[in-house]
């Protein structure tokens, strides 16, 4: 199992190197935006990975409330933290792209604001996990995770009504959407690479969570036996 994981890490690193090479040197330069458009190859896959993480977090939270097993809670904790990490990347690379292209760092548009609110919700989830005590953490966190996930479409709808400026999705959008095949090629390599990075980080974080649970359980057992330390 451990060898398999190490092999997967090596595979992920190779994939990431290859996809970065594709994004920086192979994909054609975009005509109107120029070089800066290449941020897209990191920005969108990060957003995708963050989305997947938050979805996994929702599923794991529901599973925890149903089955009450520590493994589900471990997956929930891991996916929320990795999701926030990727969401942070999205929120930082976005403005770096926007400044040369739009001339402003930030605008309160539907997609940007939704991403920011998403980030806030899952940061509050992590804060709740950190500040709640002992055996209650899992249930409280799972409840908040479900609230957060239910909130996302409502946030998106409301802010979409409020204002919109973000470029419409280039994939599967209207008639004029769609990328040059060479760009699409680089994009999919990066999508695969970032998903794998997300999986690696989630596995590491999950193992850490399980180890922490074990230490805590050992402490509790020792305390029950009359504090042998």
């Amino acid at each position: 199992m451990k060898n398999l994981f190490i092999a997967f890490v090596v595979f992920t690193l190779a994939l990431l190197a290859f996809s970065t090479y594709q994004a920086l040197f192979v994909a054609p330069t975009e005509q109107t935006m120029g070089e800066v458009q290449r941020i897209f190859y990191y920005h969108v896959p990060s957003a995708w990975t963050a989305g997947v993480c938050f979805f996994v977090n929702f599923l794991a939270s529901v599973a925890y409330l149903w089955k009450r097993n520590l493994a589900s809670d471990g997956v929930a904790a891991a996916s929320a933290e990795v999701g926030v990490t990727f969401c942070t990347i999205v929120l930082i690379t976005g403005p770096i792209w926007a400044r040369p292209v739009w001339g402003i760092w930030w605008t309160w548009d539907a997609r940007l604001t939704t991403t920011l609110v998403l980030w806030l919700i899952y940061v509050s989830y992590l804060v709740l996990r950190r500040f709640s005590a002992g055996g209650q953490t899992q249930v409280l966190a799972a409840a908040l995770a479900i609230f957060g996930f239910v909130d996302v479409p409502i946030v998106y709808m409301s802010i979409r009504w409020f204002r919109t400026q973000h470029p419409s999705p280039v994939m599967g959008g209207g008639e004029n959407s769609g990328l040059d095949p060479a760009m699409l090629h680089a994009f999919f390599w990066n999508l695969a690479a970032f998903t794998c990075v997300g999986i690696v980080l989630m596995v590491v974080r999950y193992r850490l969570q399980m180890l922490e649970e074990k230490v805590e359980a050992t402490h509790a057992a020792a305390a029950l036996q009359g504090g042998s330390r």
């Binding site: 070089e35 990191y42 990490t85 990347i89 690379t93 770096i96 400044r99």
Partner: peptide, 25 residues
């Protein structure tokens, strides 16, 4: 911030965040 500088910054920031998170783990 011009295009190529922004591009480099964005890629470096991504790497720093990912490696930083891995380091903290």
């Amino acid at each position: 911030m011009t295009g190529p500088v922004a591009l480099k910054t964005a890629y470096i920031v991504t790497w720093v965040i990912l490696l930083g998170y891995l380091g903290s783990l």
